[in-house]
C-alpha cells in the first residue's frame, strides 16, 4: 500500500490508535463527567448493561472501569433493592481531579490548549457578530447579566459555561458549537481551579460584556478580540496557578 504524502496531517491519520485500554477510556470519560459536574454528587449511574450499550463495550469492560472509579472513591456501589452505583463528587474530589490533570500537563500543553480554545472562541464570536439577530443579542445580554450576578464559584462556573455556549450557538455553526463543548469539557475544569475568585470574576465579567457589545454593534473583529482575550486572561491565570502550586 502506498501512502501519499500530505505533510503532518498524514502522520496524525496513521498514528497508533488510542493507547489506553477500553476500560481506562470508559473510566476517563466518567471521571471527566464527574469532574465537570455533569454527573453531580449522588447521581445514580445507569446499570452495567445500559452502560455497556451506551459505550458500546462489553459488561466486563464496564465492570473494570467501575471498579477503578470505586477504588478512587468517585463512586459507591450499594447492593440490593434501590442499589446501584452512585457518584461521590464532593467539591474536594472535583478539585483533586482537576489538580491531578493540571499536574500531568506541561506548561506548553496548557499554552497549546489555550491557543486552540482562543481560536475556536474567537471564531465563534466573530461569526456571532455577523449573524446575530436582535433576539440573539438580548439572549447574550441576559446570560452575561446572570454571569455578572453569580454569587459563588459554582454559579460563576455554570454561568460562564452557559455564556460561552450561547456565543457558539449565535455563530450558527453546529461544528464550532461542538468544538466549544469539547473544549469546555477538556479545559473547563482546569480553568476553574484558577478562576472563580472575585478578582478573576470581575475580569471575566468585563470581557463578556465587551463581547456582547461587539456582537450588538455587529463588529466581528472586536468580538473576536474580546473572546480571545477572555481565553488568554484565563490561560495566564491557570499557568500562574500551576507555577505557584509546583513551587
Amino acid at each position: 500500500m502506498s501512502i501519499p504524502f500530505y505533510g503532518h496531517a498524514t502522520a496524525a491519520v496513521f498514528a497508533p490508535l488510542e493507547s489506553m485500554s477500553r476500560s481506562d477510556l470508559v473510566a476517563r470519560r466518567l471521571t471527566d463527567a464527574i469532574a465537570l459536574g455533569l454527573l453531580p454528587d449522588g447521581e445514580q449511574l445507569p446499570g452495567e448493561l445500559d452502560l455497556a450499550g451506551l459505550f458500546r463495550v462489553s459488561t466486563v469492560t464496564i465492570r473494570e472501569a467501575l471498579s477503578s472509579l470505586r477504588h478512587q472513591g468517585l463512586i459507591v456501589t450499594r447492593r440490593g433493592r434501590g442499589g446501584g452505583s452512585f457518584v461521590r463528587a464532593t467539591r474536594d474530589v472535583a478539585v483533586g481531579l482537576a489538580s491531578e490533570r493540571l499536574a500531568s500537563l506541561s506548561l506548553v500543553d496548557v499554552r497549546d490548549l489555550g491557543d486552540v480554545y482562543a481560536a475556536v472562541a474567537g471564531s465563534c464570536a466573530a461569526l456571532a457578530a455577523r449573524r446575530s439577530s436582535p433576539e440573539d443579542v438580548d439572549r447574550l445580554r441576559r446570560v452575561a447579566g446572570q454571569l455578572a450576578s453569580a454569587p459563588d464559584a459554582g454559579a460563576r462556573r455554570r454561568a460562564d459555561a452557559h455564556f460561552s455556549i450561547e456565543v457558539a450557538v449565535a455563530a450558527q455553526s453546529p461544528r464550532l458549537y461542538r468544538e466549544e463543548v469539547d473544549l469546555q469539557a477538556e479545559v473547563g475544569t482546569l480553568l476553574w481551579l484558577a478562576l472563580g475568585d472575585d478578582d478573576s470574576h470581575a475580569e471575566v465579567v468585563t470581557s463578556s460584556q465587551a463581547l456582547v457589545e461587539a456582537v450588538a454593534g455587529r463588529d466581528a473583529e472586536a468580538a473576536r478580540s474580546a473572546a480571545e482575550s477572555r481565553v488568554a486572561d484565563a490561560t495566564v491565570r491557570l499557568i500562574d496557578f500551576k507555577l505557584n502550586q509546583e513551587a
Binding site: L38, P40, E135, R139, R142, R158, A161
Partner: peptide
Amino acid sequence: VQSDPQAVGFYDYEHLP
C-alpha cells in the same frame, strides 16, 4: 435531559424562543 438546575448541563428552556 439534565433537569437538575444545579448541574452544569442544565439549561432552562423558559427563555428559548
